[in-house]
Simulated scan of single mutants.
Amino acid sequence: MYRFLLSRRWAVITLVALLLIPAMVRLGFWQLHRHEARVARNALIAHNLKAPPVAFDSLSTPGFTVPGDLTWRRVTAVGTYDTAHEFVIRGRTEPGGSSIGYFVVTPLVLADGRGSVLVNRGWVESGADATSYPVVAAPPAGRVTATGWMRADETTASSGIRDRGGLPDRQFKLIDSTKQAGRTGATVLGGYLELASSVPAAGDSPTLLAEPNHSDIGPHMAYAVQWWLFAALVPVGLVVLARREEKERAAALAAAAPVEELAAA
């Protein structure tokens, strides 16, 4: 019985199964680590969103790279909007929708003279002509207090968006404080402020972006459990397959026995 397990075919089947088990276990731990990272990220975002706002320029300086623990930190900036250097970011989705348009980014020159902060004032729809600058409502004039969330400069690696040139005037693909400083010659603090509210409030303004969803943990834990179940089922599958083949071989031998007896008679 089960001598067929010593065949080359079964040696290959067993080898493949033995390779699949650790691979599936590792995939399960990979999904577990993604789950843990998502939970930690959500906890950090929730903490930063609840924290009292602090001045943007107390955290950032020109060329500053916003670390992960400061992303979505509530911040404020006081100053005057520099509409002459306003620009838009192409190919961005409407909050809660599927329409593609632009983010409107306006530098806010700080009242304390430490430089300017890029403020993402929200989303506007694209017009019929993608080569023309979209219609954008002007921000409040005079001294403004902008409150929102600190965000890191966008890169191709972090966003998956390729930063290409040759775009119409004042239109870009990524929000990058360092590049904007190089284009304008102004002192720009690293990162940018994603606007939530302002005083005074703007009347007709771009659509503000919503705060991030920090309650969704994703399906990674379920995927981890699935991979581990698959790994556990591999040896069970081997046993079932071997027993089935043994029964088929036994049935074939039993069917051949009468024929051999008749031939002998």
Rank of each mutant, 00 (worst) to 15 (best):
A257T: 12
R170C: 03
M221V: 09
L233D: 03
T76V: 13
T207D: 02
P53K: 12
V188S: 02
P107C: 08
R243Y: 11
A128E: 11
G218F: 09
F103N: 05
F230P: 00
R92T: 04
I100R: 08
N120P: 07
S7E: 06
P200M: 09
E248L: 14
T184S: 13
P95W: 06
T65W: 09
L193T: 07
F230V: 12
G218C: 09
M1S: 14
A77E: 06
A224K: 01
R8M: 10
L32N: 05
G91S: 14
L118C: 08
S177M: 07
L18P: 06
V119C: 04
T61C: 03
D112P: 06
S126G: 15
T83Y: 03
Q180R: 12
R90Y: 08
F64C: 02
A222L: 11
S205R: 14
P22V: 09
I45Y: 06
L18A: 14
E246K: 11
M24A: 08
Q180M: 15
K173L: 12
A152G: 08
T65L: 13
R26P: 01
T147E: 13
H85M: 07
A196D: 12
V104D: 07
T184C: 08
I175M: 00
T207G: 00
E211A: 15
P212Y: 12
A201F: 08
W10Y: 08
D204G: 06
T65A: 14
A265K: 14
M150Y: 03
R74C: 01
T61V: 13
G113K: 09
D169M: 08
L262G: 12
A130I: 11
I100C: 00
P139H: 04
V225H: 04
A181N: 05
A84L: 07
A263Q: 10
T83M: 03
L108Y: 08
A146E: 04
V54C: 06
H35A: 09
S132A: 15
T207I: 14
A46I: 05
D69L: 03
V105G: 00
A252W: 08
T93D: 02
T155E: 01
L70G: 00
T93A: 11
S99C: 01
A51G: 05
G115R: 01
A256R: 12
T14R: 05
G115I: 09
T147N: 10
E154T: 02
G190I: 07
I175W: 03
H33Y: 13
E194L: 15
L167R: 09
V104H: 03
I21Y: 07
T80G: 03
W72F: 13
L59E: 01
E36Y: 06
T178K: 13
H85C: 03
V225I: 15
W227A: 02
W72G: 00
W227P: 05
L70K: 11
R114I: 01
P212I: 10
H33K: 10
S126Q: 14
G165W: 09
V135C: 00
Y133L: 13
D57T: 10
W30P: 00
T61N: 07
A146D: 05
A265H: 13
G113D: 10
